[in-house]
């Protein structure tokens, strides 16, 4: 009972699950293309929502959005189920596996035994693919890992029924039908436009405006909350930015790769140029992460370091605003 399944590693779990599930159906798509078509690049700041005792910052849209958007744009049919009863959730999964259907699951990270301790926190939107069952153990393709792993029934139930914010409730999904080779011109254009609109949205909570808000709040944290708390918030922000499953700087590179692929597909030189520009912005995000990690480590006490970080972030927001305005015109 083991599907002829190919595990491909990815930079982000949701993209990876998409690529692996579709690949199994005979629909070949690259990770950057899946990410781009799902309009995966995003930024949202939720200062009133505390996650791990720090304000909520996310560099991606709500879990499941990337796959749903992309599936809609390509005409892929996806079935999704949630179960209030864990027994039924397992039944459905076993049924799928006996039919050789690799199945995507949304799980909590905290109880995944194969993750290093540093990665274990209560984050409930990780994606894995189960592609078989052997001697009571589920064979798992976790696309952020370079090798496949396995979980026993209890372990899998525990992560499928992780509780708290975004509890997955046994969430399970799989594509039921994929189109034959199709023209990507319109889906690419639509997806790019949506990302531009998201990042340029005229509301303070999302896109470049939200980046500016965080930049201002870094100074506020320092004044009101003190150095320790500010550093903790910064550390959390960088984790959200660079850790597996989330992505900030890393996401810019995936998006740049998507723009390159899209530019070649549409024979659009402007997209190819913008792809290189996006990579430079990605480098700046990495510089920001590096600088923030230095601040966190040294616990420097001068006001200046936070001012520098805040300025850097402002500059990033300016760069991205200019970038997405150009990108919008390019398609």
């Amino acid at each position: 009972m083991q599907a002829d399944f190919q595990h491909k590693q990815a930079a982000h779990c949701e993209n990876g699950a998409i690529v692996n599930l579709l690949g199994d159906k005979g629909f070949k798509i690259s990770e950057p293309m899946a990410f781009g078509l799902g309009s995966g690049l995003f930024f949202v700041y939720l200062p009133f929502l505390k996650i791990n005792h720090a304000p909520g910052i996310s560099y991606r849209p709500m879990p499941g959005k990337i796959f749903n958007r992309m599936a809609k744009r390509l005409g892929i049919k996806v079935q999704r189920f949630k179960f209030s009863d864990p027994k039924k959730a397992q039944q459905k999964l076993d049924e799928n596996l006996s039919k050789n259907i690799p199945t995507g699951l949304v799980v909590g990270v905290y109880n995944l035994p194969y993750f290093p301790d540093e990665y274990r926190f209560h984050f409930n939107a990780h994606n894995i693919v189960v592609f078989g069952k052997k001697n009571g153990n589920y064979l798992i393709s976790d696309s952020v890992m370079d090798y496949t792993v396995s979980l026993n029934e209890d372990e899998l139930e525990k992560v499928r029924y992780a509780k708290g914010a975004l509890a997955p409730k046994g969430h399970l999904y799989y594509p039921v039908s994929v189109p034959d080779a199709m023209d990507l011109t319109n889906p690419i254009k639509k997806a790019i436009k949506q990302t531009c609109n998201d990042m340029l949205a005229p509301v303070p909570l999302v896109g470049v405006k939200a980046i500016r808000w965080v930049a201002k709040d870094i100074l506020k944290w320092h004044k009101k909350l003190g150095v320790a708390k500010t550093n903790y918030n910064l550390a959390n922000m960088i984790r959200m930015q660079e850790e597996i499953g989330t992505g900030g700087g890393g996401f810019r590179f995936i998006y740049a790769a998507f723009l390159q692929e899209a530019g070649e597909y549409l024979k659009n030189q402007e997209l190819l140029n913008l792809s290189q520009e996006m990579a430079l912005i990605g480098d700046k995000w990495r510089d920001f992460a590096l600088e923030a990690s230095r601040v966190v480590k040294k616990r420097s006490n001068t006001e200046n370091v936070y001012q520098v970080l805040s300025n850097d972030l402002m500059k990033l927001a300016d760069m991205e605003e200019a970038f997405f305005k150009k990108l919008k015109k390019a398609v």
Partner: peptide, 25 residues
């Protein structure tokens, strides 16, 4: 050649630093 490729990485110090700070807190 200016082409985007996927590369494997064993990790990045900046990330490890903030993770340890996080665990310390």
């Amino acid at each position: 050649d200016g082409k985007f490729v996927s590369v494997q990485s064993t990790g990045w110090e900046a990330k490890t630093v903030v993770q340890h700070e996080n665990l310390e807190v």
